[in-house]
Design a protein around this nucleic acid. Structure first.
Lengths: 197, 197
DNA sequence: TTCATTTTGTAGCGATCGTTACAAAATGGA
DNA sequence: TCCATTTTGTAACGATCGCTACAAAATGAA
């Protein structure tokens, strides 16, 4: 057959992901990607058609490895509300571990890339729909567990949580302060239609 | 004296602002700025030291001409809650007038520029503090008018509103749909500690 | 009218951008 | 062993990047 590749594709995508995540699409050069992945440009272009195509693959990778992973890890916990809280906490836990905070590749891309880039837009839609559905499921379980009021409109509250999540992510890059962010999330959780005991 | 300038500085800043707002800092070239302002690069560099310095001036311009203007226009209305609602509405009204939606230059910059760029960070802080204070004042007036409960912690709710605003702005670029955004703002307003009648 | 001063337009600087041509290197199959 | 196939490293392509040198143009002061 052919000469074997020196790198596994998931590793390349993960390393490229971190660069795009931190510096954005326009702010990331192919030279930078070469350095981060350890591949030369010719190898990168051999696997991916262009910087744009690599970015599309990275976006898919992010949705599975970061978004879906966090959904599975937190939003499927037995205690739905506690899981939701931990999901938000983990968001800025993750951020404050990094230097500097990088928010969320989906939100970054939403604000950076042109709205006329329909392929990227569709990927963002998919990633955020994943989150919205996971929020809705989580809230539904909280209703069934008697944590939230029975008349809670889970779909609408899921959209509200998605909105708050994006707000937390933007805020975390401006005020990377754990206490402040935790207080903000307190407010988000308290706004939910909690079941009164 | 000297040869007079063909352009007024505020006009130049406004035009440059629209370009940075839409395409980001890295995504905006000096050629693009020349075209948008009608000035040549030599004229731009004669007034501003660098692209970075021009961006800093543009950010100041944005804080005064867009942020402060909207605060004065909406958040100082006699009916504090109605003004607050109109402030949020105006945010995505403004967005849907544009092709494509451009969110907010402060949020865009927060997610794009490096956290180590302390000068830009300080400007973002200033702009967002302006908004937070205006929200707090607005809520305080709503409390005094009996629209919100007397025990409302206006400062915390102001931060919450700032969070929701950023969320709305991100969402508006992904789903530039007026009805959906209006429903989201319904949720934000309903979450406030309204005085029960 | 001459001069000092600032803005303007032209033209292009070196550096970096995304991308590619090409041949050497590394494999399994024949 | 030789071949077909794919990856790799080297080197560089034309285009564009942020930026600037330089002189002509346009003003008020002397």
């Amino acid at each position: 057959m052919a000469r074997p590749s020196r790198f596994r594709e998931p590793d390349v995508l993960t390393r490229a992901m971190l660069v795009f995540w931190q510096h954005g699409f326009a702010g990331t050069s192919v030279r930078h990607l070469e350095q981060a992945t350890g591949l030369t440009a010719s190898s990168l272009y051999n696997r991916f058609d262009s910087k744009e195509a690599l970015f599309a693959s990275v976006l898919d990778h992010y949705i599975v490895k970061v978004v879906q992973w966090r959904i599975d890890r937190y939003l499927r916990a037995d205690d739905a509300l506690a899981g939701l809280r931990r999901f938000f906490d983990s968001t800025y836990d993750y951020i404050s571990e990094q230097r500097p905070p990088m928010a969320c590749l989906l939100a970054n891309t939403a604000l950076e890339k042109s709205a006329s880039d329909h392929a990227v837009r569709a990927q963002l839609d998919r990633g955020l729909a994943l989150l919205e559905d996971a929020f809705a499921d989580c809230l539904q379980r909280a209703v069934q567990a008697g944590q939230l009021r029975a008349d809670c409109d889970c779909r609408r509250w899921a959209r509200h949580l998605l909105l708050c999540l994006q707000g937390v992510l933007v805020d975390s890059t401006i005020h990377p302060d754990h206490a402040r962010l935790s207080e903000l999330v307190d407010g988000v959780m308290a706004a939910l239609p909690l079941q009164q005991h």
